[in-house]
């Protein structure tokens, strides 16, 4: 039982890192629907680097760097060029999907390094994730930088008038978001499941994106949501632990995705929106033109 829980929390960590980055992104008003692409590229870069150099730290460094660069690219398009954020995000996703399939194909297979040690089966990255949640919460709700981030996402014109550089804040946040997405991908390919395969994520990034909406942009709720989805994900991979022999294993694989839809529906109902949904950043997805 503990093994299953520990493994589930390992899965939660992947969701958590990516979703936390996206949360920071969205708090500043930038929507990045290409999260999955950033994770794919970061994960692939980390895997290739770690395998060729034999060094985990270098692998993580590569993953974080690629993630940050792609985040910056999204920032350039959506902040400087004030383009459609969905076009840019989708573009980054398909770009990453296509290029990583080609770049990684020669590395298909297991990583072949000694596994990163775990704490009685629990991934150390989960603890990093919890710490990051606390740091993010403190940053967003208890510091002046956090206030600047939130105001850039709620009312950028007012933020600018009070002396905040919306462009700088948003660039900072997309880069941090990208780095965390890269970390998420790297954690997947170096720790959670160190076997490279084309399009290895198959929807993890999009579930992470949905988790941000579920979290009402609060890091602690995000932690709870990510943990829940990690458990659900792990159970869908090995349903025989709970309900042996009931339904095909393929049907179980649909469960995490199938549950996401009704949750999205519930949080979109007028009842939920008026009661709980006020946390959504007002200027989310809208480019900001100064002056």
């Amino acid at each position: 039982m503990w093994d299953l829980l520990a493994r589930s929390l390992g899965a939660s960590t992947i969701f958590l890192f990516a979703a936390l980055g996206e949360l920071v992104n969205q708090r500043s008003g930038v929507l990045n629907v290409g999260l999955e692409g950033l994770m794919l590229f970061g994960g692939t870069a980390a895997f290739i680097t770690a395998q060729t150099t034999g060094s985990y730290p270098l692998g993580f460094l590569a993953g974080l760097t690629i993630g940050g660069l792609l985040g910056l690219a999204h920032g350039f398009f959506s902040i400087t060029l004030r383009g459609d954020q969905v076009v840019s995000g989708m573009g980054l996703w398909i770009l990453s999907f296509g290029l990583t399939t080609y770049l990684g194909s020669a590395y298909t297979g297991p990583l072949g390094l000694a596994r990163i040690p775990s704490l009685m089966g629990l991934s150390p990255f989960f603890l990093v994730g919890v710490a990051l949640v606390a740091i993010t919460w403190l940053l967003i709700f208890r510091t002046s930088l956090g206030l600047a981030i939130r105001s850039a996402g709620e009312n950028p014109a007012a933020a600018e008038a009070s002396g905040i550089s919306v462009v700088a804040i948003r660039y900072l946040c997309v880069t941090v978001g990208g780095v965390l997405a890269g970390l998420s991908g790297a954690t997947y390919t170096l720790s959670y499941n160190p076997v490279w395969n084309y399009n290895f994520l198959m929807g993890w990034g999009f579930v992470s994106l949905a988790l941000v909406f579920f979290s009402m942009w609060n890091p602690w709720i995000l932690l709870a949501g990510a943990s829940l989805f990690g458990i659900m994900w792990q159970l869908s991979l090995s349903p025989e632990l709970v309900l042996p022999g009931v339904l095909s294993r393929y049907v179980w694989r649909t469960v995490p995705f199938a549950i996401t839809i009704p949750i999205l529906v519930v949080i979109s109902t007028p009842w939920f929106r008026t009661r709980w949904g006020l946390a959504k950043p007002e200027a989310l997805g809208r480019p900001y033109a100064k002056g």
Partner: peptide, 16 residues
């Protein structure tokens, strides 16, 4: 493997 996938990605990049 995956030249066709890479092309897809490159097209997306130049489109943006």
């Amino acid at each position: 493997f995956g030249v066709d996938y890479a092309l897809l990605g490159l097209l997306m990049m130049t489109f943006i």
